[in-house]
């Protein structure tokens, strides 16, 4: 049967693209991670330095601080997004004009360019003329004149807000997809027995949603670990280094300081974290599929 070879021929174009544009650069930066290469002084990569670039990271206070910032960012933004998305999905499960309208509106934040989101939040949180900063100050006078983006904690908070605003709609759609496959029968039966809505949510709906919720949480974790665009356009990493994420720090080391060896090593630390998370994700998908076919 000719299908035998055709099934692989069909894959060739896509694989050529993936190999040339992903596998090759990955291998290249992996090798560079073990070399000494200051691009501002040297045109070509210098000698191999073993794991020096990696051990440098462990004593680099800047790196440790970005790792900490990234960890806080990931935990808070994932938790908020998952809870909000699940709640919204429960509301939007019903039909109605306002429900349908909300579904359509939710597409917009997701379609908006993240760089632009950063810019527009920076505008809105400007203490002198930003509409949110000023509006809050007028409604709650104690909040007037707070320098949102000049305070390390508040700036990180605003950064998280941009990310939650951007991703909650998408994750809501994923939760809605999951809810659609939860059979209504058990729910109706529980309601007949007089169970409260909260009980039904907790005992009937959520247990059947765990698979989808884990997928949502892991995907969001992956996206959050890569956070870059809004860091540049909202805070520039500041004040100081308070909102520098790992991806931003790699960019800074590589393209502001031109230390290619160290930047590659840091990039691979980030890649390793992401691969570990995605490996867990892939295993979960496989397990789910097995359960679905069983």
């Amino acid at each position: 049967m000719r299908d035998r070879s055709l099934q692989y021929y069909l894959l060739v174009p896509a694989f050529m693209i993936v190999v040339a544009t992903t596998i090759y650069p990955l291998a290249y930066s992996f090798i560079t991670a073990f070399r000494d290469w200051d691009l501002s002084k040297q045109r070509r990569p210098q000698g191999f330095v073993g794991a020096d670039n990696f051990t440098q990271a462990l004593s680099d206070a800047n790196f440790l601080s970005t790792a900490w910032v990234t960890a806080i960012f990931v935990v808070v933004s994932v938790a908020l997004t998952v809870v909000l998305a699940m709640g919204l999905a429960l509301l939007l499960r019903r039909r109605g004009p306002l429900h349908d309208f909300t579904r359509i509106i939710l597409i917009l934040p997701f379609a908006m360019s993240p760089a632009l989101i950063g810019v527009s939040y920076r505008f809105m949180f400007n203490p002198e003329y930003g509409v949110i900063a000023k509006g809050l100050g007028q409604v709650f006078p104690p909040l007037a004149g707070i320098p949102w983006l000049a305070d390390p904690h508040l700036a990180l908070g605003v950064l998280i807000a941009t990310d939650v605003w951007h991703w909650t709609p998408y994750m809501t759609f994923m939760c809605l997809g999951g809810l659609a496959s939860v059979p209504r029968a058990t729910e109706e039966a529980a309601r007949m027995d007089g169970a409260s809505s909260l009980r039904i949510l907790w005992d009937v709906i959520l247990p059947q949603m765990t698979g989808v919720l884990v997928v949502v949480a892991v995907l969001k974790t992956i996206f959050a670990l890569k956070m870059f665009d809004q860091v540049v356009t909202l805070t520039g990493g500041g004040p100081g280094v308070a909102t520098e994420t790992l991806a931003f720090y790699v960019y800074k080391v590589g393209f502001k300081w031109f230390d290619m060896g160290y930047a590659s090593a840091l990039a691979w630390v980030l890649t390793a974290i992401l691969m570990a998370v995605s490996a867990g994700y892939v295993r979960m998908l496989l397990k789910e599929r097995k359960m679905a076919t069983a």
Binding site: Y28, I222, F228, A247, V250, G254, F255, T271, A279
Partner: peptide, 20 residues
Amino acid sequence: AVISTQFVPAVVIVLPFFLM
């Protein structure tokens, strides 16, 4: 293998591409 390349951060890919 194809799908997991999607999880590779862009900042890793861009370094070698920049040099190339």
